[in-house]
Design a protein around this nucleic acid. Sequence first.
DNA 1: CAGCTGCTGTGATTTCAGTCACAGTGTGAG
DNA 2: CTCACACTGTGACTGAAATCACAGCAGCTG
Lengths: 205, 205
Amino acid sequence: MNWKQLFPQFEPALIEMIEKEAVQRTFYAGDVIMRTGQFIKSTVLVLEGRIKIYRENQEGGEFLMYYLEPGEACAVSMICAIQSTTSEIMAQAEENTEVLMIPIQLMDEMMNKYKSWYQFVIQTYRGRFEELLSVVDNIAFRNMDERLEFYLKRHAGDSGKKHIELSHQQIADDLNSSREVISRLLKKMEQRNLVKLHRNMIELL
Amino acid sequence: MNWKQLFPQFEPALIEMIEKEAVQRTFYAGDVIMRTGQFIKSTVLVLEGRIKIYRENQEGGEFLMYYLEPGEACAVSMICAIQSTTSEIMAQAEENTEVLMIPIQLMDEMMNKYKSWYQFVIQTYRGRFEELLSVVDNIAFRNMDERLEFYLKRHAGDSGKKHIELSHQQIADDLNSSREVISRLLKKMEQRNLVKLHRNMIELL
DNA sequence: CAGCTGCTGTGATTTCAGTCACAGTGTGAG
DNA sequence: CTCACACTGTGACTGAAATCACAGCAGCTG
């Protein structure tokens, strides 16, 4: 696929280098891409599909933080790459996903040589930092009903999909809540004509 | 004061540049250093004291994210400086605080010229990102009693102070909770011999 | 079609935290 | 000393969310 359109800001020399050095790889829906405590050996650029970045705790609870979509990069992999330390998060492919993997040894060189890469890295940090801030806002200040609405909107994504194919259980997991709570709140949303519920699918109105 | 000891990793040329260009400034306990939506014109290095970084919502609730201590820098100010955008957080001096303010125009040059500065910036990002992760963990997975214990430990800091001079109300504000809840939980901790309560002061055991 | 499994709906109960109301106590100002 | 005020302790109530228990239903398998 022609990935260059996804990163129009990259300068030609950088594109050349990536084309030469990076490895393209496919992950299938459900594949775990990165695991807590795992060593990172590459920086990941997303070309296609969607990656879910989440936190896991000892008791098996999980908590969605954000998604990576085409044209974005994993900030955690960059930070860890530069310092070659372990990651503290989980990454899982939500759909079949194409990524470019850039070996960490190249990071330093790219940062120094290519202004557009440097800008991209900073941009990525900033984006994820702000995303984390809004996550904190949500769980600190909002109730479950508001968080659920926010979740559905975000899950629909920029694409503006109207059909969200998830079971109530999956949503509950992402929000670190329980299935019954989500079912009840969704019912309330249906009564307010915000959504229409189907089996394994939620239709946004 | 001799701030160089706080940043031993800085190379001599960088120190020289900072000494020439940066402005030292004092904030007094309670001063608001940065406000949500405000434009950032400098990167901040902490020399002495402590700065509280927190999030505020519309209804007046606030929520502590982390502290900046001597030898640390404000990641948000760096990110915003590089992209010259507004901040999304509040920063307030907890004690009388000395900082070095480095004009944002110099950031680019420093990043390119001084490897040790570049490393420091990356290090700062990483540190704050992880701090945010642990904040998310806490509010997502932990109950108030555990969060309170975590808060007290963090507030004591690396210094290992045993006397925390805060009213229950201040703690409740930082945790976005209410005074009564904190009072009760502290009482329970006292019964478990974890702390000893005094007026405006909590003694860690 | 019968039976299984996974998804959904719903009531009852419990737990945690926030809120209200109020009382006691330490401290500082006058 | 006394008064005002901020800080602390506690009981009662409320509300949000988690948990338990169970029932109905869709879809698949054999």
